[in-house]
Structure formats: C-alpha cells, structure tokens
Amino acid sequence: MVSELINANPVVYKKKERRDRGARTVLDEYAAEPIDQLEIFDHIRDIKDPEHPYSLEELKVITEDAIDIDDQRSYVRVTFTPTVEHCSMATVIGLCLRVKLMRSLPSRYKVDIRVAPGSHATETAVNKQLNDKERVAAALENPNLVDMVDECLAPSYA
C-alpha cells in the first residue's frame, strides 16, 4: 500500500439531493420503466473513494451527466474524473465502477468505463486497462485488489 496519500486534501462537494421518483402507486402495471441515467448514477454514487472516507459523488469523481446510456442497445458509458491528474487510484476507481455495474445491471449490457479526457496523465493506458476483459478478470483474481474493491463497495448507506 502507499504510505502517503496521493491527494491528501481533496475538495469535498455537497451531495446532490436524492430525487424522489414520485408516488409509488403504479398507474400502469405493465408499463416498462427503462434503465436511465439516474438509475445508473444511484448505483455508483455511494461507492467510497479508495483513500478517503467520502463517496465518489462527494468528490465529484462521477456526476450524473457523465453517464451515457442507451437502454435499447444495452450500452452504458461512465466517464469519471480523478481528483488529481497523476492519481494512481484511477484504475482502482475504474475497477470499482465496473464491478459495481457488473453486479447491478442485466447481463445484456456492455459497460464502458473511461477517464474524462484531459483529466489524467496516462489517460489512454488507464482506459485500455479498464476495458480489457482479460486484464479485468486477472485483476479480480488478485485477492488484495478484490479486498480493496469490496471495501469501497461496502454499502455505506443502509
């Protein structure tokens, strides 16, 4: 593990208010509610940052607008912004995002995780690593990494 924090003093933003989806009474029993941006955002907003006790939302690593989704074509792309350019945690954050979405979305989805353009020093490398199936699978064989990911995904909001 790193002995020193990479970004020792991150800016913490206010959490967005949780939008209520309106009344729970179902008007039409058979109307489909497609998966949308907010739903994806709800899945990943509470993931904990690997080195701070804040959620990714609070650190503005992810925002609702940075999620592209097409339910018809079963495609979702999450673009995240590491807090500092040289953040070595970017891959871990990306891995957390991928794992969380893998667990939360139907298997028909293709998930694409990207670092926001210009926000990271080794952008292409990170993107490549995050979207390489075999490297992701290999990473998840590593018990240390899996522990770290699970800690970040531990539900902090009951």
Binding site: R21, R24, V26, Y30, A31, A32, E33, I35, E39, D42, H43, V99, M102, R103, S104, L105, P106, S107, R108, L140, V146, D150, P155
Partner: peptide
C-alpha cells in the same frame, strides 16, 4: 435485474449482493 420496473430491479440488486456473498465473494 432486467425487470421492466425499477423498484424490482433495485430490490434485485440488493438481494443479489446478499446471496452472492454467501460462502464466497465470487463476483462473477
């Protein structure tokens, strides 16, 4: 997880986590 209704999907995510963590942390 692919249910047409959102509420069901959300419950499914929670429930899946609970069952997946039984005995193994297999995330596959």
């Amino acid at each position: 997880l692919d249910d047409p209704k959102r509420v069901v999907r959300l419950e499914a995510v929670k429930c899946r986590l609970a069952w997946a963590s039984i005995a193994s942390r297999s995330i596959h």
